Computed example of a mutant assay.
Amino acid sequence: MKIDIVSVFPEYFDVMKLSLLGKAQAKGLLEVSAHNLRDWTHDVHHSVDDTPVGGGAGMVMKPEVWSECLDQLLGLDTSAGADEPSISQGPIVIFPNPSAPLFTQADASELSGAQQLIFGCGRYEGYDARIPDYYRAQGVDVREYSIGDYVLNGGEVAVAVMLEAITRLLPGFMGNPESIVEESYTGSEPLLEYRQYTRPTSWRGLDVPAILTSGDHGKVDRFRRDEALERTSQLRPDLVERLDCSQLDKHDRAKLGALGWDLSGEHPRRTK
């Protein structure tokens, strides 16, 4: 996978050289390049923003700077005489945006199959809304995602979050691929993961649940499944509401019933 990141602070992404992301690059699983948006400016001040049309506080990132940058990274031919812009490849362009749909594990899973991702980091009051509109009109797959119900100073943190969620799903990225199978939000049932423990089994008066040391794998699996259902019911009931009642076994149904869920319909419904 090839990843290009555009930012006015490209040095922020030096962190991509650390830990598993750094090892994955060393192994040739992915290539990460951070670009300075100011390299595509032509004025003495290297300006990338201007005041909002219609008034208002802050500054907005200018479309002409972004267009020169994205044209080059996308391989778009916009030279004079070209019949129409043409895309040499099919990268996916992603802009973090607090007003966009929420980025999910399902999105990370889908994007992990892409050949090339281009991330654009907005700053100030954001980027001119015509930028994603223009490139979608050229046939580019442009995505805008939020990572939560809050606002950041810029898109760099959000890009780092999405990048880690996406790249860890690449084949060969994780030392033990089984470690991602039962994580929160993963699979057809997006439940929160059960809690994890390690040795010592007794620590400062707190003991690991005895069932986990019983050696009975069937009971351990059931304990973990019940805890996942209970934690999800308590913390993210919206995820329980997405479950397919027809796919729940009798133990799941008993647990959810005890937690106050009506399972008579297609999806669980809270009764208390």
Rank of each mutant, 00 (worst) to 15 (best):
E193P: 00
S19H: 09
S179W: 02
I92G: 04
P85K: 08
D128V: 03
V8F: 06
G28K: 06
L243K: 10
R38K: 07
G205Y: 00
G154F: 04
A137P: 05
V32K: 03
C121P: 06
H46V: 00
P177Q: 02
V65M: 06
R231H: 08
V159G: 04
G81I: 03
M16A: 14
Q89Y: 14
V159R: 04
L248V: 00
A137D: 15
S79G: 14
I211W: 00
G122S: 15
E64T: 08
I180Q: 13
Y145H: 12
A82I: 12
A158N: 03
S214N: 05
S47R: 14
S202Q: 13
L263V: 01
M59I: 13
P177V: 10
L169E: 01
P200T: 01
H35G: 01
R143P: 05
D14M: 13
L30N: 11
L37I: 01
Y127E: 11
P132K: 13
P209I: 00
P91S: 03
E178V: 09
P237W: 07
E84C: 13
L263D: 02
G55V: 05
R195C: 12
G155H: 05
A108G: 09
A106F: 07
W203F: 15
I131D: 08
S179D: 12
E227M: 12
L235N: 10
S19T: 10
